[in-house]
Design a protein around this nucleic acid. Structure first.
Lengths: 211, 211
DNA sequence: TTTTTTAGTGAACAAGTGTTGACTTTAACT
DNA sequence: AGTTAAAGTCAACACTTGTTCACTAAAAAA
């Protein structure tokens, strides 16, 4: 009973400093600069920790970055799995998928902003990791499409190219979404609307495609 | 005859330091970091000039950035005009347009890299300037499409949405292109090929579109 | 030719950067 | 309870950063 009080100059914070550092970095990315231009001291200051404490948890700023990237994509992957399970191929599949996806984007704004800014501004290592992840999504989408009865006559390359078209657009729309204010629900609805229309248009073209 | 020699500690460089600074910044963007994380001293060093000389030409690093942005888009705009003049609406219009466009991208790699990296990593001012420019392209494309006989039954919003689809994709493909090595002509051809196919697919969908 | 404007230099500043090393406190293990 | 390992602090380092000021060379204007 003598432990939980009387902490003055040294705070208890058990294993939570690591998380504090990650959250601080994410915060700074949201309201300031891309991760690549954050300084170690800046991050530790916001986390409420002395600069040298950083080294107890990460060797490097770039190590923090990769951890953040991992975190971002792990939750994103699990959401995508969910989207694919919940949406059987029917009429409002497109609308439903886009809705859950963009809801997820709104709820994880910080992570998406982080990824978007590093996609081009980051170090080569970072960029490659992100591109690899995106390529993976494209492949999975191509495989999903191959299972559709009215698409199984298409070649693997064509499917890949079509999946790429979809992913490129969703990526662009995500970025557009991220530029909007969090409170701008009207704009967000508008982006969602365009997203649905554009995907519908794409699949209209896919139906007409002759190899 | 006594002027052009005998310059020792002070170099002649008439009005060319300004250009040297811009070129230096562009160089550094290509082979190092996004513009936003370049330092004034770094740029002046590469330009072969002392740091304080910078202030004779720009008030700020961000002023340099905006100048660079202006330069990038001015030449891009004139190219787009050329593409539209040279390509009358016929069979190989898509192929032709994409070829000249991507040739231009290859020849102006530095400028495109600069823009791509600032599109998300830059300051709000920078980002807005770029997005405004892209929106302008989208509008012009929509107007071009409206002139096609088989498209004049479409609503303005639908045309806008279709143009957006095209622009989003070309942007994504441009970024993909920029990630390739300058020497990787095979990869470049491949991207060009996908670009053409994807646009063809889009226009296939456009033909089927019912408002 | 003399004068004035423009475009370069160099030294110095206050502030911020990553990283080190030697300590100290807390939590965990025996 | 005593020991050990993990996670925090503090002071100091060598460096880079943006910006100032006074000064000087060259080009342009008179």
């Amino acid at each position: 009973m003598s432990k939980e009080s009387s902490s003055r100059s040294r705070k208890p914070k058990r294993g939570q400093t690591r998380e504090a550092l990650m959250e601080a970095a994410l915060d700074l990315v949201v309201k300031k600069a891309p991760f690549s231009s954050l300084s170690l001291r800046e991050v530790t200051k916001r986390a409420g920790v002395v600069p040298t404490a950083f080294y107890r948890h990460f060797t490097d700023m770039s190590a923090l970055g990769l951890t953040l990237l991992d975190e971002s994509f792990r939750t994103l992957r699990q959401m995508m799995r969910q989207v694919r399970q919940e949406n059987q191929p029917n009429e409002n599949m497109l609308r439903g998928s886009m809705e859950t996806y963009f809801n997820y984007v709104r709820e994880n704004r910080a992570h998406f902003l982080f990824v978007a800014k590093e996609l081009f501004g980051g170090t080569p290592t970072m960029r490659n990791a992100i591109r690899r992840e995106i390529r993976m999504f494209t492949n999975e989408l191509a495989m999903d499409m191959a299972r559709f009865p009215f698409l199984n006559h298409l070649s693997a390359e064509d499917l890949q190219m079509m999946a790429g078209l979809v992913v490129n657009n969703v990526t662009a729309l995500t970025q557009e979404m991220l530029e909007l204010e969090e409170s701008d629900t009207f704009g967000q609805q508008e982006v969602l609307g365009t997203a649905e229309k554009q995907l519908r248009l794409i699949f209209l073209g896919v139906g007409q495609w002759k190899s």
